[in-house]
């Protein structure tokens, strides 16, 4: 039943080689991007006595989910108030007015650094404007 074994094996090898490009490309070409580091920025915010709406670990893992929930609450339910589960403080559910305005004033440092590194493009800024930019 088996025939053309050589061709089939070669085909599989070529397929695997192409399929795995993302895993070895930067190693081979050497143009790996520097891993982003937000810690200094967070340290200085902490030094100013500021804290995020939830813990840093939670925000790292879930900020997109939180923002999506905020978005649906405000757009569809006119529900603007967020009570922090971690700290019990009330915030306005607004990426621009709460997050960017009050703490993370440098969007390119804070948002774009990681998003560029992991190659995600959130659609927020197609419509929402950053005041003063």
């Amino acid at each position: 039943m088996m025939y053309d074994t050589g061709k089939i094996v070669a085909g599989i090898i070529i397929f695997l080689a192409i399929f795995s490009v993302p895993f070895w490309y930067s190693q081979v070409t050497g143009d790996a991007e520097e891993v982003p580091n937000l810690d200094p920025a967070l340290e200085s915010l902490k030094a100013e006595g500021k804290q995020c709406v939830e813990s840093v670990d939670y925000m790292r893992a879930k900020h997109m989910d939180l923002l999506n929930t905020w978005r649906d609450d405000v757009v569809r339910g006119a529900d603007r108030e967020y009570v922090s589960e971690e700290y019990g403080v009330t915030y306005d559910k607004s990426l621009t007015d709460t997050c960017l305005e009050q703490c993370h004033t440098n969007k390119s440092d804070f948002c774009d650094q990681c998003h560029t590194y992991v190659n995600v493009e959130p659609g927020c800024w197609e419509c929402h404007n950053i005041v003063g930019e």
Binding site: A78, E126, C127, H128, N129, I130
Partner: peptide, 23 residues
Amino acid sequence: NPVPNPNFPKRTKGVVEKCNFCS
């Protein structure tokens, strides 16, 4: 550019829009 009211978002191409009674 910048848009007349930066505090209100604009839309993207490909969506429908209309009056929102200033929600």
